[in-house]
């Protein structure tokens, strides 16, 4: 067992014992449009926020959508304890996320949180974060925690073109930010796993979230180079807190719930 597994294992035990899940109304503070289909929603808790760990997610109730029956799971993009806010980074996919994109300042949003496990946080290591699409969502808050634990942080974002390379300044607060674009309009041309940094630098830990083919490529790079790697998975979720068993991922130890035993998994535990 490598250190990363051990780390995750220990923190999980502590977390399971202490983290109470809540269902609360939040107030929308602002909605920032990032480009055509991505936006960030800042929502303010009416009571002091509990401890929230990087990699965890929320399950939000969408109102006024005929086709949205269940809640929508969204990663926690950032937590600002001073403002008592959670930020969500959302891509408009269907009616549920579209309706979230119409929320205005002062609107209320009902949220079940904090859900899921967390990325493990090493100390004083050289860490690489790879994100693509709306999978970048959990990486900002992760970058903050990694930096605070004394790690060197490099965030590598893979996007389609320049207009999708958003929030770069936010990542810069916590370390180095690199971008690949599919059309070559910004940063290096290609996919994140083709970026030259992977040849140049040696990383101790890799964390990734994004489309499955991208995460599989990142996992393959990590496995080849013997670097511990954690991925954040999506799945079809009805409840988000372990009650329905609708969200299983196949692991080396049998089916596991993505919502309670994930969404963060070490690649060694997955049947990839």
């Amino acid at each position: 067992m490598n250190y990363l597994c051990l780390d995750l294992f220990l923190t999980d035990i502590i977390l399971l014992g202490t983290m109470k899940k809540l269902v609360q109304d939040f107030e929308v503070l602002q909605r920032k449009e990032l480009n055509d289909d991505h936006f960030v929603l800042d929502v303010k808790a009416l009571e002091p926020l509990p401890e929230i760990r990087p990699g965890q997610f929320v399950n939000v109730l969408v109102k006024d959508s005929n086709t949205t029956f269940l809640r929508r799971p969204l990663s926690i993009h950032f937590v600002d304890y001073e403002r008592n806010t959670i930020s969500l980074y959302i891509k408009k996919i269907g009616d549920g996320t579209k309706k979230l994109g119409e929320l205005k300042e002062g609107d209320s949003l009902n949220i079940v949180y904090p859900l899921g496990n967390q990325y493990s946080i090493p100390n004083n290591a050289n860490t690489l974060l790879v994100g693509g699409g709306c999978g970048v969502a959990p990486l900002l808050y992760l970058a903050k925690h990694l930096k605070e634990a004394g790690n060197n942080v490099t965030t590598l974002l893979g996007v389609r073109s320049e207009k999708d390379a958003v929030e770069l300044d936010a990542y810069k607060e916590y370390g180095n930010i690199l971008v690949t674009t599919e059309d070559g309009s910004f940063g290096e041309k290609g996919y994140p796993t083709q970026h030259s940094i992977l040849e140049k630098e040696k990383f101790d830990y890799v964390f990734t979230c994004g489309p499955e083919p991208m995460m599989k490529a990142v996992a393959a790079y990590s496995a080849q180079n013997n670097i511990p790697c954690e991925v954040s998975l999506e799945n079809t979720m009805a409840c988000g807190f372990g009650a329905c068993l609708c969200c299983v991922t196949e692991t080396t130890e049998g089916n596991k719930c993505t919502c309670t035993e994930g969404p963060v998994f070490n690649i060694n535990d997955l049947k990839w």
């Binding site: 269940l70 799945n235 079809t236 068993l245 969200c247 299983v248």
Partner: peptide
């Protein structure tokens, strides 16, 4: 997987 699909007013 997949074990769940949302449907109009149900799952």
């Amino acid at each position: 997987y997949p074990r769940m699909a949302e449907t109009p007013s149900g799952m």
